[in-house]
Amino acid sequence: MTAASTSPMIRVAGVDKFFGPLHVLKNVQLEVPKGQVVVVLGPSGSGKSTLCRTINRLEPIDSGVIEVDGQPLPAEGKELARLRADVGMVFQSFNLFAHKTIVENVMLAPVKVRKTPATEARKTAMELLERVGIANQAEKFPAQLSGGQQQRAAIARALAMKPKVMLFDEPTSALDPEMVQEVLDVMTGLAKDGMTMLVVTHEMGFARKAADRVIFMSDGEVVEDSTPEEFFSAPKSNRAKDFLGKILTH
């Protein structure tokens, strides 16, 4: 990132967010340059999922600025829909469309939003399903797949829009342990291909291996922003030390 003129893919500046009296995001600052993989760690309730969801405005913010690829988030409406089309999102609970087959799930947005012809969209969808390793499940309904397969389908669905950036909101937290790795492998592959990613997760292994940067959040604040090596070997804050102490001893 030498070119100073290029704006970061995600810029979060001075963002505050309240749920009623609860101050969930406190003056959050974060920039994610193009091509970088940023992992957000932190105890539950620290605001990391909320932060992830504010970036495509699934959660509106109370103050501050969020820009995606240099463009501030517009208010709800067609403009926002257009911006969201460029931001892929993967949810903890997969949220595949229950009444559509896997390949239809992947095709829907390209056909409806990008107006891609159905045959072309299907071809691309099958390539993506191949890439995440579930092409043989294409004609099944989401409920017929395992959690890991559903999450990989959800990743394919997000990729079908050719997003500039991918947001992952605890993508492996709802999975059985033996299925976590297959999803992480897909994500690691994406990271290697140069996708800009913001990943909220509890997977320390993924953070170590695939992240360029680790953000540690606690009580709605960004407490640390460092490289994975630094964060895991020499955390600066007591809160991070305490957090790592709790996880790594198990």
Partner: peptide, 18 residues
Amino acid sequence: VPVGQAEASRALGLTFTQ
């Protein structure tokens, strides 16, 4: 219909009517 279905649609860029 679970809220997640609507959220996933919005996240993909579908309009309210879509």
